[in-house]
Design a protein around this nucleic acid. Structure first.
Lengths: 206, 206
DNA sequence: TTGATTGGGAAACGATCATTTCCTATAAGG
DNA sequence: CCTTATAGGAAATGATCGTTTCCCAATCAA
């Protein structure tokens, strides 16, 4: 229907070109999988939300699990991109950690908060049944934890975080706060509630 | 087969008595629903784990959702009971909060941690689709948050928690830490890791 | 233009799902 | 003893699930 855009996954080989934007489809799949979970999402839910027929969907992503994995990867990439932007706007280690907390507070209130985090949803829905998903969830959390540890160390180097703290433990503790915000955000919280949590968590750096 | 025990739900009316212990069946259902999620659990999974046929299961719990709700309530009651015991062993407000943190650290490592929390699983799996489940999840979290707020206030009264802290915000922050521990515990953590998180969280009371 | 290759899409497929039936067994009340 | 009421359990039921098939359209290489 619409003229084809650039295809990142296949650089114009033979055959009919894809008519839909893969990333846009994955963006919509993020919303569906996030609020319904993997097992709670039917192919019909996806075809309706993505505006695709089952045939096209299977041609592009092999099967439901393949679509989920691609959706998961896109979600992690998008979140990392947004977080990087928030981090670049802060200078000191403490300010960067505050930026992370604020980023999660922003994501954990209102309708977006209710929709929830796809990593959290994957951890509880698939991590015990699917080894590949479990590895990606653990990897995403490890990246997050490692990033926090680096920021704590940065803050200790620039004097904005207490030097006696164990960076690894503090990072793990902050990770719990972040994931906990995402979890309780599913019950519908106000922006001010979550902002206060983010503020209070800074005490962990003293 | 076995002689009937005491039936709490029905005090010996007419008809054939139930042959299985309802609470024992629910205890097994907790494990199944916790690690597979609601949508990921099939009736056949439950009949196998509980040692019941589908007919008996439907006679006792109406349908899958009814069994889930009963399982959820039993889980919350069991957790509250365990937590109460841990709380009674501590005297000061700070000691009681430490007991809560240790209780969650104990639940969030190893195989039990991997199995996960049924409240967390319900929050991400059903809270957006089922209003009754959403209300129970929100209620369970509210009870937890209120209990933490009372303990913070208790600690401020007995001088073991910093008096200038906002009890409500600190309680919400602690709730995030607890739920976050449950979440990252799904990726398989060691007891020492989670114990360190519990220790570090006490800094929030200074 | 022709052949090879891929995507779009409706319909069909077998499998599995939650649930119900139907029958037998076991109790209480009269 | 007879009626009523509930539980146990195997089998059947209809719906829905994920997936495939089949046919046509669109593009590239020659």
């Amino acid at each position: 229907m619409t003229p084809p855009a650039s295809l990142p996954s296949r650089q114009r080989g033979p055959g009919r070109p894809r008519e839909f934007d893969t990333d846009l489809a994955l963006d919509r799949a993020i919303a569906v999988f996030s609020e319904r979970g993997y097992h709670g999402t039917a192919i019909s839910d996806l075809t309706q939300a993505l505006g695709l027929t089952a045939g096209s969907l299977y041609k592009a992503f092999t099967d439901k699990r393949g679509l989920f994995l691609a959706t998961f990867d896109r979600y992690v990439a998008l979140r990392a991109e947004g977080l990087r932007a928030a981090l670049d706007a802060a200078s000191t280690g403490r300010a960067k950690i505050r930026a992370v907390l604020d980023f999660y507070a922003d994501s954990s209130h209102g309708p977006d908060g209710r929709r929830g985090c796809l990593v959290v949803a994957s951890a509880v829905d698939l991590a015990t049944a699917d080894a590949a998903v479990a590895a990606r969830v653990a990897g995403a959390l490890d990246v997050n934890e490692g990033r926090l540890a680096a920021l704590v160390a940065l803050g200790q180097a620039d004097g904005t975080v207490a030097p006696h703290l164990d960076a690894a433990v503090t990072a793990r503790l902050l990770l719990c706060v972040l994931q906990g915000m995402r979890l309780i955000g599913k019950t519908g919280r106000h922006a001010t509630e979550m902002a206060a949590v983010a503020d209070g968590a800074l005490k962990l750096l003293d």
